[in-house]
């Protein structure tokens, strides 16, 4: 899906969204400091597109996905779904929005209740969000099972009877069961073997075409992201580093972090000896991110200015944004 076929209609718009977790300590459990998991993300998600979110573990990409869905309460920021502001709404008022947004989780072993039959797991969302009769629900579940490549007789089975790939298919069936328009996929294939991974990616693409879904695809696998996404957001320590259409990002990575990330991927080609950009050291702790540009401690281009001043988010080309002083 590398051709941009998306209509530029904004589905979800978030502005300066933050998610800080307090760290408490001492005998009075006073707040000592905060883990800044997501620190100021501004972004429009267009209808029908697949937005990839990439970065190293601990960069806040999963927290961003959960915050957007309302699974975590944002510390700060404005979130507008189809133009309606979601902040300050009561849970009851949020219910119609929740059926529009679903999530596919990373670990297909942990995200299914081991004591619940697959059919019941799939039916649950239908009971809450639709007024279908039991017979109607059953036929809907059977239809869902078929759609994700499972069989009707799987209805009465328990999660342990399925392989990892099949469980992820069940997770996908559950996410699409109430016809949402927006799905956050949090590393949906990283726990799977490569051959199964390819099958699941194919299924996700087919379903997107059929149901006109919008995906936010959180992943650390840059190969999968290139294959599946239209636009890609690169995150580092809770902040936005670069956002660009997929082809631009991979062919012309501009931020030094994106460049390093892309050059670190081992390629399945023998005898290709190009110099890689080496990043020294590890990701700094999100409790105490470095001042100025968060990346300056590992950046090969860092200057004095990077240590003092946080770089502005700016558009360098149509649809291509970065946050860097030196580019």
């Amino acid at each position: 899906m590398n051709t941009v076929t998306t209509s530029r209609q904004v589905l979800y718009s978030i502005e300066n969204v933050k998610k800080h977790y307090p760290i408490k300590g001492g005998i009075f459990k006073t707040v000592k400091s905060h883990v800044k998991a997501v620190d100021g993300i501004t972004l429009d998600i267009f209808k029908g597109e697949t937005l990839g979110v990439v970065g190293e573990s601990g960069c806040g990409k999963s927290t961003l996905g959960r915050t957007i869905l309302g699974l975590e309460t944002a510390t700060d920021g404005v979130m507008k779904f189809k133009g309606d502001d979601l902040s300050g709404k009561t849970p009851k008022q949020l219910k119609p929005y929740k059926r529009e947004m679903q999530m596919i989780f990373q670990d297909p072993y942990a995200s299914l209740n081991p004591k619940q039959r697959i059919g019941d797991a799939l039916e649950e969302a239908l009971i809450i969000h639709t007024d279908l009769e039991p017979a109607g629900r059953r036929s809907k579940v059977n239809q869902l099972l078929k759609e994700v490549g499972l069989k009707e007789e799987h209805y009465d089975r328990y999660p342990h009877e399925f392989s990892g790939g099949q469980r992820q298919r069940i997770g996908i069936a559950r996410a699409i069961s109430i016809n949402p328009s927006f799905i956050v996929c949090d590393e949906p294939v990283s726990a799977l073997d490569v051959s199964v991974q390819a099958q699941v990616i194919k299924l996700l693409k087919d379903l997107q075409e059929k149901h006109e879904l919008t995906y936010m695809f959180v992943s650390h696998d840059l190969g999968v992201v290139r294959h599946l996404c239209d636009r890609v957001l690169v995150m580092y320590l809770g902040q936005m580093v670069e956002l660009a259409p997929v082809a631009k990002l991979y062919e012309n990575p501009t931020h030094p972090y994106t460049e390093a990330l892309l050059s670190a991927i081992p390629r399945p080609v023998v005898g290709r000896k190009t110099e890689r950009i080496r990043l020294q050291g590890d990701l700094p702790s999100p409790t105490d991110p470095p001042p100025g540009c968060a990346f300056h401690t590992r950046c090969p281009l860092a200057t004095e200015r990077c240590k003092m001043e946080r770089p502005k988010w700016r558009e360098i080309e149509d649809g291509h944004f970065i946050a860097c002083h030196n580019k």
Partner: peptide, 24 residues
């Protein structure tokens, strides 16, 4: 061959994913 074509190539925008059917 299936293993090699199950991994999306980062450098190739026109990569065709060709999964092996079934499981181990």
């Amino acid at each position: 061959k299936g293993l090699l074509s199950s991994v999306p190539n980062v450098d190739d925008p026109y990569f065709k994913l060709n999964p092996i059917p079934g499981t181990l």
